[in-house]
Design a protein around this nucleic acid. Structure first.
Lengths: 214, 214
DNA sequence: TAGATTGTTAATCGATTAACAATC
DNA sequence: TAGATTGTTAATCGATTAACAATC
């Protein structure tokens, strides 16, 4: 069976499609053409059709796409019809923010535990989950099914904790630490490097200023 | 004067170069070749040289690149030799996390104010800055130079607040709200859509599982 | 000078857009 | 049936990689 590899560029656009389709559903829109969607999303209709056709035909000639159907299909492609259990390593503001974010739950991401090395934080409540000591992480992972670890700790600690996570069967790491993690094949890492994003912003502010000076 | 537009693909890689060069500086490394850097960073040496040459020659044949010099040059390209003042809209955990993040200050991003519509939060202290009522935002922006607004509020509120920001001269918005903002030309938006990132992760977890089943 | 390594041109690869035949 | 719009192929564009002459 031929495994047609979908490019990450396409995957990266799917969540945005899903968002617009969700809005359309809420508005009560039943069908939409690639042309209409392209105007809303400010992308080409051609790209929309190409993207969707990576996964087979979701539309119908002369009609367009059924919004609810397309929404469901993209959800499935993104794996949102499954449940995932995650723990958060680091109970600072960022860790707490992610633990408190209810929308993740709605998408099937279930918050199972949060850990910190700071004893003062241990015992604090984050949306019904008590902060545990980092020493308890290994035992917790052995006793509970957890697929995803969220790293919201400084980079030095992050590098150390990765081994514990990997050794105990973590499949994916959502990494907010400002470092590139070294993981074995088969363990996924999705990085959110906030300061990189901020630097892109400052580049563009600056570029605009420079252009005006010309 | 020809304005050679640098692609955002290149810009997006610069912060990562900067990070590795900072590490090299800390290790006391004085010079590095594109070949050595490529091994560390797991990108091609060719890409490294192409990227740097977008901005003119930073290296020297037969020698390589001077780490400290290259670090400084990339800092300047990214606009990190300037100061920026930012306010945070939304004093929830995420807003507080960003306000507390000291490394931004180190890069020239100065935390000036934080606002929330919840009266219970007003007056709370975030790294020496008191949370202000959202009603005070407009006056604050008129009285203080602020280039960047950070949006850490739900999407409905985000859409409303953008007008206030734009009308009061905000140049750039770092948007954590899960919505595409509509801003006039000349106002920059850098999106951090966390749930999009999480969905990419779940796609890849799922894809791996599917592949194994074949 | 010989060796190393950049800067830069050329080749390749992949992603986006355009065009249109298929078909609802 | 005629009109609309997809699915898909072909053309274009841009980004990455390879190759090598320039030069330190």
């Amino acid at each position: 069976m031929e495994t047609k590899e979908i490019s990450q560029a396409v995957i990266g656009r799917l969540p945005r499609y899903l968002r617009y389709l969700g809005d359309l559903k809420d508005e009560g829109v039943e069908r939409i053409s690639s042309q209409e969607l392209s105007e809303r999303m400010k992308v080409t209709a051609s790209q929309i059709r190409q993207d969707f056709n990576n996964f087979g035909g979701f539309g119908q000639q002369g009609y367009g796409y059924n919004v609810a159907y397309l929404y469901d299909e993209i959800s499935k492609i993104l794996g949102l019809d499954h449940k995932y259990h995650f723990v958060i390593i680091g109970a600072g503001n960022l860790g707490k923010a992610l633990g408190n974010y209810l929308n993740f739950e709605r998408r099937g991401f279930i918050f199972k535990g949060i850990f910190d090395k700071n004893p003062d934080l241990v015992g604090q409540d984050v949306r019904g989950v008590k902060v545990m000591a980092i020493e308890d992480l290994e035992r917790f992972l052995k006793e509970n099914p957890v697929e995803i670890a969220v790293l919201t700790i400084p980079k030095t600690s992050a590098v150390d904790i990765v081994d514990v996570l990997v050794d105990n069967g973590i499949q994916a790491i959502w990494n907010f630490a400002h470092v590139d993690l070294n993981v074995p094949d088969g363990v996924l890492v999705e990085n959110v490097h906030l300061s990189d994003s901020l630097m892109k912003l400052s580049y563009n502010i600056n570029r605009r200023k420079t252009e005006k000076d010309l």
